[in-house]
């Protein structure tokens, strides 16, 4: 039983004509989001990155791991000695930068999505339990959250990666270990507020179980802040993955990652600026798009969160 939407008094057999039917909160929020052209543009850009990541094997002009030492540090096509078949030039091992950027989008988006999905699920469940059950459950979860928040994020992730060793699975684990606390805090706060509302009281009076109240009553009503927080946290996770890969602690070669591509290019900054700078533009474009889209989502779904 979720919070009842206002129903018009005259709604026999199918209700009012479409034009007069009151708009649902979801539709209203989506309409607000669509009206914000900048956020909509950013959302489209994210979609383009997602398509690039999915279709990487079809659209990448070359094998990202295939090096040709004769093309070592070859400049982009628009510069002297550049070639249009290697649009963005080649790195120190003669690998096509554009193809590596395309495959790198897979790593960034995949890690971002996996980390945020697992963290938001754990954080939401923990936040619901802490906020609704209270008592010892709340104390334990809140103390754990406080403790994890006591570590600067990068220090925590670097510490864990140092101990676990680099690699895709470990980077996901290292980020999830801390990331869940952010959605947990938001959900706990929202649950504490919702716990006292009438619809929850009503569910309790009807004899619903605690699990039912948390998952079927409260959760649907607090999903919008979870969504907003998850979106803007994803931008942060992508930067974290790139930073760890830059330090050599993230995804390992030959898998291309934007962060490790910048690190490789740093060695040849004086002779070939494009190797280090181009992957950075990709990171900036994706993170910027996610940040702009998340601002739009925040304004549309939860105006109370506006800064």
């Amino acid at each position: 039983m979720s919070q009842p939407a206002p129903t018009p008094a005259t709604a026999p057999n199918g209700g009012l004509p479409a034009a007069e039917r009151p708009e649902s909160p979801l539709h209203a929020s989506l309409a607000t989001f669509r009206a914000n052209r900048l956020s909509l543009g950013a959302a489209i850009l994210i979609l383009v990155f997602a398509l690039i990541a999915i279709l990487a094997p079809l659209i990448a002009p070359h094998d990202p791991a295939d090096g040709d030492l004769l093309r070592r540090l070859q400049p982009p096509a628009w510069r002297p000695d550049g070639e249009w078949s290697y649009l963005l030039g080649c790195d120190a091992l003669g690998r096509d930068i554009l193809s590596r950027l395309i495959y790198g989008a897979r790593v960034s988006m995949m890690i971002g999505l996996i980390v945020i999905s697992i963290s938001a699920t754990i954080g939401t469940l923990a936040g619901l339990a802490a906020g609704y059950l209270g008592g010892i459950t709340d104390t334990l979860i809140s103390r754990l959250v406080d403790t994890l928040l006591s570590f600067p994020y990068l220090v925590f992730a670097i510490g864990l990666m140092a101990m676990m060793g680099p690699g895709l699975h470990n980077i996901i684990l290292a980020l999830v270990y801390k990331e869940w606390v952010f959605s947990c805090r938001v959900v706990r706060g929202a649950t504490l507020a919702a716990r006292e509302l009438e619809y929850v009281e009503a569910a309790r009076a009807l004899g619903c179980t605690r699990a039912h109240i948390m998952l079927r009553e409260i959760l649907p009503n607090i999903l919008s802040p979870v969504l907003v927080v998850a979106t803007f946290r994803m931008a942060y996770i992508i930067i974290m993955e790139a930073s760890l890969s830059f330090l050599g602690l993230g995804v390992q070669p030959p898998t291309p990652s934007w962060g490790s591509m910048v690190a490789d290019g740093r060695e040849h900054l004086l002779e070939a600026w494009w190797v280090a700078t181009l992957p950075g533009f990709a990171i900036l474009a994706l993170v910027l798009a996610i940040n702009v889209a998340s601002q739009g989502l925040r304004d549309a779904f939860d105006p109370r969160l506006r800064g």
Binding site: A235, I239, A242, S243, F246, G259, V262, A263, G265, R266, L269, L270, W273, A276, T277, P279, G280, I283, L284, V287, L288, N291, V292
Partner: peptide, 22 residues
């Protein structure tokens, strides 16, 4: 401000090196 929070620090540092040092 949006650019500031979206820019990876290691890359920004490299851009500054390229501009002011190189």
């Amino acid at each position: 401000g949006l650019f500031g929070v979206s820019m990876p620090g290691f890359w920004f540092g490299i851009l500054l090196i390229l501009l002011f040092a190189v």
